[in-house]
Design a protein around this nucleic acid. Structure first.
Length: 597
RNA sequence: GGGGUGGUAGUUAAGCUUGGUUAUAACGCCGGCCUGUCACGCCGGAGGCCGCGGGUUCAAGUCCCGUCCACCCCGCCA
């Protein structure tokens, strides 16, 4: 008797067979996706990662196999052998293999399966927690498998494209020295060095710059990074980046390489041609017009700066506006929602939006609906002078039935609220066109931003090169200095970020000083890099792109978790393995760690 | 650290506003029938610590307090 795997080798996968194969013998392996037992004959939908093939067991073909088939259940792993047959009048146009079926004469059950804990269909509505607990089953779903097939293509395309462009793939350590600043690090205790810790690398930043010092010229790596920060829909504590660095380049050179990569990815994964060059927006324009440094450009609806108008009218008798524009750095901005869209919002909806605004730390959300002759209805700012109201109507281009939202305060808050509102309502009112890929480079980021304590911190990282034209203001007006940094934004998602680095030690010293870092501190934190830069560093720059986010967008997935094989929950746990978990006291002792009582 | 949503058979949900007989349905599961289904169909059946702990009450899935878990957002993510 012929034995499966030994004599009966797999001849086709479950998505391969077509009408032209009729009459051939075939051996298929896979999982039982569905069973339809008619008593007289038994149909099995056999599934593997390539598709579904209908298997039919009939008593006249092989009575024993037919009997055996009625014992099959969902998710049994089986092998079948038989003859491929055209289905005649019973074709299934919904299946690529629907013209044929395999009339099985031989069946083996490799393993049985318990009833799955959730429905394994593509459109399963089962709670994600239970699917994560049995992730290996969730990963059997064709819709999920499709994501990982696409993700694999992303790796293939990236390696081919970057190799073609003379990049070397070189690895960097995950276990590194802790350097302060930036994301919180996961720490790894050192058994051999009591009281000492490694950090898991949040990025290969410093190492890749050292590759440039070493003359590697062009480096890339598809690399895991670790950040111990709170999770989001689009943020996991360990994530993958396409990290690259190039010597003797300007920002345009780096951007060209990345644009080429994106064009190749969209072509290979989706078969879509993305036009080049990508749009470019300065950071000032992006935050000014859209209130965000990662604007979704699939729709416009820009914000409008009303600071000067309000100033000119001295607050228009509205005390809050008056004090807002008189405060240092205070701005007033508005956002117009045209009448056609605004009519979809009831008064109760607007009240809910106020709660939404408060979520960003706003004290409220002033809004008005334009009525007859530019009058404001449903507005809390009753005391506003007609002059200011008219001036705002004109500045914001307000017409009959339009809604206008006003926000005042610090630039950061105003942009967060109105930019957030713009996005929130676009989703709610379905204003975002589908199947649109709006890539955009955000350029000219500020080099520094103010920390909570009012100190300057690096907006990107401390090795980012200042804009040469702004160098002279590094000491006198550091807040105005632009960085040679750039982000690639796609449909409102930051998918890559990078910069031209500092390679002159005098400039680096001035940046450290601006950051309030003494020579000793700089030496203690980044001494090895500064030391390396004494030995002829080339001008260089690079970028890192988030593979998980790219995969999410390319797959049309709603969540990063749908494109990561074994993702963490929002609390950073793994529901399948139950990580993180406690360890024995003995292990802690070995690591020289004492638990706080 | 803050705000919000949810947790009821294996799964997905209803019931909770207004406490009151045996907690309801669909899918799945088990048994029977069925030779052309493909979300097969028909008949029958089993399946529940209503997340957990406390409280109020004659009585709690339902009201109150606490807690755990999952998800979304803000802060955070150089």
């Amino acid at each position: 008797m012929a034995e499966f795997l030994v004599d009966l080798k797999r001849t086709h996968d479950c998505g391969a067979l077509r009408a032209g194969d009729a009459g051939k013998r075939a051996v298929l392996f896979g999982w039982v996706a569905a069973r339809r037992d008619h008593g007289g004959c038994v149909f099995i939908d056999l599934r593997d990662r390539n598709g579904l093939t209908q298997i039919v067991f009939e008593p006249e073909t092989n009575a024993a196999a037919h009997r055996q088939a009625s014992e099959l259940r969902r998710e049994f792993c089986i092998g079948v052998a038989g003859t491929i047959r055209e289905r005649g009048g019973h074709k299934n146009p919904k299946l690529p293999t629907g013209d044929i079926e395999l009339a099985a004469d031989t069946l083996t059950v490799f393993s049985v399966a318990e009833t799955p804990p959730f429905e394994l269909s593509d459109d399963t509505r089962s709670d994600e927690a239970i699917r994560l607990k049995h992730r290996y089953l969730d990963l059997r779903r064709p819709a999920i498998q499709k994501n990982f097939i696409a993700r694999s293509q992303i790796y293939q395309t990236t390696r081919r494209y970057l190799a073609d462009n003379r990049f070397l793939e070189i690895e960097t350590p995950f276990m590194v020295k802790y350097t302060p600043g930036g994301a919180r690090n996961f720490l790894v205790p050192s058994r051999l060095n009591p009281g000492q810790f490694y950090a898991l690398a949040e990025s290969p930043q410093i190492f890749k710059q050292l590759f440039m010092v070493a003359g590697m010229d062009r480096y890339f790596q598809i690399v895991r990074c670790f950040r111990d920060e709170d999770l989001r829909l689009d943020r996991q504590p360990e994530f993958t980046q396409i990290d690259l660095e190039m010597s003797f380049v300007t920002e345009e050179d780096v951007q060209n390489v990345v644009e080429g990569l994106m064009v190749n990815l969209w072509k290979d994964v989706l078969g879509i041609d993305i036009p080049r060059p990508f749009q470019r927006l300065t950071h000032a324009d992006a935050t000014g017009k859209y209130g965000s440094d990662k604007p979704d450009l699939r729709f416009d609806l820009p914000l409008c700066d009303l600071t000067e108008v309000v100033k000119k009218h001295d607050g228009g008798s509205v005390g809050l506006l008056q004090s807002a524009v008189n405060a240092p750095g205070g701005v007033v901005k508005g956002w117009r929602l045209p009448a056609a869209q605004a009519k979809g919002l009831s008064r109760a909806d607007l009240d809910k939006l106020e709660e939404f605004a408060k979520g960003f730390g706003a004290r409220g959300l002033a809004r008005a609906r334009l009525g007859e002759g530019g009058a404001w209805a449903q507005s809390p700012m009753k005391t506003m002078t007609d002059d200011l109201r008219k001036a705002i109507n004109e500045a914001a281009g307000l017409g009959d039935g339009d809604l206008v939202f006003l926000q005042f305060g610090t630039k950061k808050l105003v942009n967060a609220v109105l930019g957030g509102l713009r996005l929130h309502l676009a989703v709610k009112l379905d204003l975002i066109p589908k199947d649109l890929w709006r890539f955009c480079w955000i350029t000219d980021f500020p080099l520094f931003e103010a920390s909570d304590e009012g100190k300057l911190v690096a907006a990107h990282h401390p090795f980012t090169s200042p804009h040469p034209a702004d160098l002279e203001r590094l000491e006198s007006d550091p807040g105005s200095v632009r960085a040679r940094a750039y982000d690639l934004v796609l449909n409102g998602n930051e998918i890559a970020g990078g910069s031209i680095r500092i390679h002159q030690s005098d400039v680096q010293a001035r940046v450290f000083r601006a950051l309030g870092l003494s020579d000793e501190e700089a030496q203690a934190k980044f001494g090895f890099l500064l030391e390396a830069f004494k030995f002829g560093p080339p001008p260089h720059g690079g970028i890192a792109a988030g593979v998980d986010r790219l995969a999410m967008l390319l797959c049309g997935a709603d969540s990063l978790r749908d494109v990561i094989a074994f993702p963490k929950t929002q609390k950073g746990t793994d529901l399948m393995t139950d990580a993180p978990g406690p360890v024995a006291r003995r292990q802690l002792d070995e690591l020289h760690i004492a638990l706080k009582e």
